[in-house]
Design a protein around this nucleic acid. Sequence first.
DNA 1: ATGTGACTCGTAGTCCGTC
DNA 2: TGACGGACTACGAGTCACA
Lengths: 67, 67
Amino acid sequence: MDIRGRLARNVKAERSERGWSQEDLADASGLDRTYISGIERQVRNPTIVIVERLAKALKTTASALLD
Amino acid sequence: MDIRGRLARNVKAERSERGWSQEDLADASGLDRTYISGIERQVRNPTIVIVERLAKALKTTASALLD
DNA sequence: ATGTGACTCGTAGTCCGTC
DNA sequence: TGACGGACTACGAGTCACA
């Protein structure tokens, strides 16, 4: 599984653990809802600054999201 | 320290642990020497795919580089 | 051996939608 | 609720000459 797959898996896991929709995460992170969708479908290659924003919204770390 | 700072610190640490120049890392990762320089000076905001390439060249993980 | 500015080109990331 | 598309702007990828 490549790095995009791992990010997708971890974001989905953290998000549903909170019972959040993609839109909830979009609001919490200040990112676009379609962009969250793209990350989870592995069609996006985000920058590390974006991964950090996701991590903060999900109360975890960038490292954990890429594990 | 933000995520770019942590990446810069960890790349520098792993690189000098191997006694590698920026150019050695550039060769091993297939990236340009000046691009490596930009990452270490925190003027770049690389994508996760780039971080993965650096991690492989340094025989570590993307997670570790962002810790 | 490294820092830096400038550049082209592709894609990151946003916003509007429909299904 | 989420997949997916089109159009758009901003910025990252990748490279060079020079200090």
